[in-house]
């Protein structure tokens, strides 16, 4: 060896490489190392939190099947046709209009949950969008002032105060719900201005328009669920419960 000094760094590098080579495979290739049990436990705990009793299973399953067919035969084609005919700008205005009408529900539930800042923001958004936004057709407050709505409802309020889900209920047309969220829906309907209009055709018509309009934005979400799920009934139930729990935490 001409220059023995070069041996030192080379040796160092070789030792270093060997050392890292010994360490990494033991982490990478051992079957189910202990640290994964932590992950396993975490998901098991999460699963237990999302368990909601389903004593009405046979009724629920029947309604689920009914809704599934309704979606296939009527709602999806209607939403597709609507999306094809109605320009994006109008669809967005329709959505905004309804969002603005739901203001009392959000406002009261923000208050009930003690979120005064959120309630204040709701008031601000409502007045700006109703005036400058043209009866809520535009979302000036969100776009120009970067204000955010906080989508609270009475079911979430009850959840915040530790009212449990009760049991799982599937409603015709409305889809998955729980006893708690059904109570919430009844409470919220008292705060929805269009329910006080003394003309059933307006009330029902507006509900159909609202649901077709919102479905037009997520037409294939339900199909994706059906395509991906091993058991669509359980997948929908679990998805609903998870989503509500996330919203309550927010």
């Amino acid at each position: 060896m001409k220059n023995p000094k070069i041996i030192v760094p080379i040796l160092f590098v070789i030792i270093f490489c060997c050392f890292s080579a010994i360490i990494s495979p033991s982490i990478a290739f051992s079957e189910e190392p202990e640290e994964f049990s932590e992950l396993m436990d975490e998901y098991e705990e999460k699963n237990e939190q999302t368990q909601v009793a389903d004593p009405l299973y046979w009724y629920n399953y029947g309604v689920f099947k009914f809704n599934d067919k309704m979606y296939n035969w009527f709602i999806e084609p209607a939403a597709n046709g609507y999306k094809f005919v109605v320009p994006d700008e109008i669809r967005s205005c329709v959505g905004n209009f309804f969002t603005n009408l739901f203001f009392p529900i959000r406002f009261i539930n923000n208050l009930l949950q003690g979120d005064f800042k959120g309630a204040g923001t709701e008031v601000g958004i409502f007045f700006i969008n109703t005036t400058a936004g043209g009866l809520g057709l535009g979302q000036v407050a969100q776009e120009a002032l970067d204000l955010q709505i906080s989508d609270e409802d009475f079911g979430q309020t009850l959840g915040k105060y530790h009212v449990g889900e009760g049991i799982y209920i599937v409603w015709p047309f409305l889809g998955p719900s729980t006893l708690r969220d059904t109570l919430g829906m009844v409470g919220d309907s008292l705060l929805y201005p269009l329910n006080y209009v003394d003309a059933p055709e307006v009330v029902i018509g507006s509900k159909v328009l609202y649901s077709i309009n919102s479905t037009s934005y997520r037409i294939d979400d339900y199909n994706t669920l059906r395509k991906g799920a091993i058991d669509p009934y359980t997948a929908l139930k679990n998805g609903y419960i998870q989503q509500r729990q996330v919203k309550i935490k927010e």
Partner: peptide, 26 residues
Amino acid sequence: KESNNWKIYDILIEGVSLIANYRDTY
């Protein structure tokens, strides 16, 4: 798992965990 090879093990869409969803089925 390896020194710095990041791999996805779950996706949450609007807060809903896909893997937790399948776990409930299984």
